[in-house]
Amino acid sequence: MFPKLDPLLHSELRLAVMSILVGVDEADFTYLKKQTGATSGNLSVQIDKLLAAGYITVEKGFKGKMPRTTCKITTAGQEAFEGYVKALKEYIS
């Protein structure tokens, strides 16, 4: 029997965001937007969902005079991502 895929990660944009965050210390909103090609509104909604699940932390601050939102993956997020990739591999093999 195949393991159940995490529904939170089994969405294109959220998975892209998690794939970026898993490889970096932290990333700001502008970078995530540029890398995913998503609109600000949609990206905000998906980030909020990941935040609510405890997969990422979001810090709002300023870089100079410009507002800056920084996202960072949590340990729970890393574990969920690893579990998701492991489950995907089982589906394929």
Binding site: S11, E12, L13, L15, A16, L88
Partner: peptide
Amino acid sequence: SKEQNKEMSA
């Protein structure tokens, strides 16, 4: 763009 949030295959 990952705008659609579509369901994907493994």
